[in-house]
């Protein structure tokens, strides 16, 4: 089970209606290389799960997709990632509209120390998406409804977002992200800090969001990947080993490393 030099990804890493396509992406943290020549398409309105053992680079890859890695000084990304025909690593590209288009939800719920309303209104406000107060109220309400949180918080919109439970906080963060009306949502282990009931709610939500958004989700839980995603990509030590439909990956994986992982021989 040794690492294969310059491994060519097994399965079907490419698709016809790609929203995002990564080509030969390498990531270095200082001297250390974290991602090796990853090429992968993410299709329109699909949920793709990125799985693999800890430290395999799946979160790092996810953070490349909206250039969140820019905030880390020593991180260098090469290769290209194309969103709707334009390379997002083009020096002329501004990360602000990019991140407004490709939103992100993080592992640990991170509501701002503001009210629930202000948390959701934050994105529309900075981007100038609402033309009036009524407009903004509507965006906030719709976003909270889509995130399945409206019923729980509609009477306390002006109490602090940090006062919600963990699961509610994470749904608030999702509402905050969809308030900007992005096209792609990146989720970095969004349920790892949550209990099973909260997790189930988020998974349900992801399924609903698929209609409108393209979603890439990093997860530790293979059950979760199986439940929410249509395609699954398996990462191992910075390499993309295999990409296939979720059914195929979990029933008849092509690569022995994938098989070893999903059968629980390591991970």
């Amino acid at each position: 089970m040794s690492i294969i030099e310059n491994h060519k990804t097994d399965g079907k890493p490419f698709c016809d209606s790609a929203k995002l396509s990564a080509r030969d992406v390498c990531v270095h943290y200082g001297e250390k290389q974290a991602i090796f020549d990853v090429s992968l398409d993410i299709g329109k309105n699909e949920v793709i799960a990125l799985i693999g053992p800890s430290g395999c680079g799946k979160s790092t890859f996810l953070r490349c997709l909206n250039r969140m890695n820019d905030t880390i000084d020593i991180c260098k990304v090469t290769g290209e990632i194309v969103l709707d025909g334009g390379n997002i690593y083009d020096p002329k590209v501004d990360v602000v509209p990019l991140r407004a288009t490709v939103g992100m939800v993080f592992q640990k719920p991170n509501p701002f120390p503001k009210t629930i309303y202000d948390n959701v209104a934050y994105g529309p406000r900075i981007h100038g998406l609402a033309t009036s107060r009524v407009d903004l109220d509507e965006i906030v309400e719709k976003s909270l409804q889509r995130a399945g949180l409206w019923a729980e918080v509609k009477d306390r919109l002006h109490s602090p977002g940090t006062g919600l439970s963990g699961g509610q906080q994470q749904r608030l963060c999702i509402a905050r992200t969809i308030a900007v009306d992005p096209e792609v949502i990146l989720m970095d282990e969004p349920c790892s800090a949550l209990d099973p009931i909260a997790t189930a709610k988020i998974e349900e939500l992801i399924d609903e969001l698929r209609e409108k958004y393209t979603i890439a989700i990093v997860t530790h839980s293979m059950q979760q990947a199986a439940r929410v995603s249509q395609r699954t990509a398996y990462f191992h030590l910075g390499q993309l080993i295999e990409v296939n439909s979720t059914d195929k990956v979990f029933t008849t994986p092509e690569h022995q490393l994938t098989e070893a992982y999903i059968t629980g021989r390591f991970g």
């Binding site: 501004d94 509209p97 981007h127 100038g128 998406l129 009306d181 096209e183």
Partner: peptide, 21 residues
């Protein structure tokens, strides 16, 4: 999501000059 016909991306692009300054 919003009432106007512009997409998010267009609106964000429109706000960029002011925000960069």
């Amino acid at each position: 999501m919003t009432n106007s016909n512009l997409t998010t991306r267009q609106k964000v692009e429109a706000s960029m000059a002011r925000r960069r300054a």
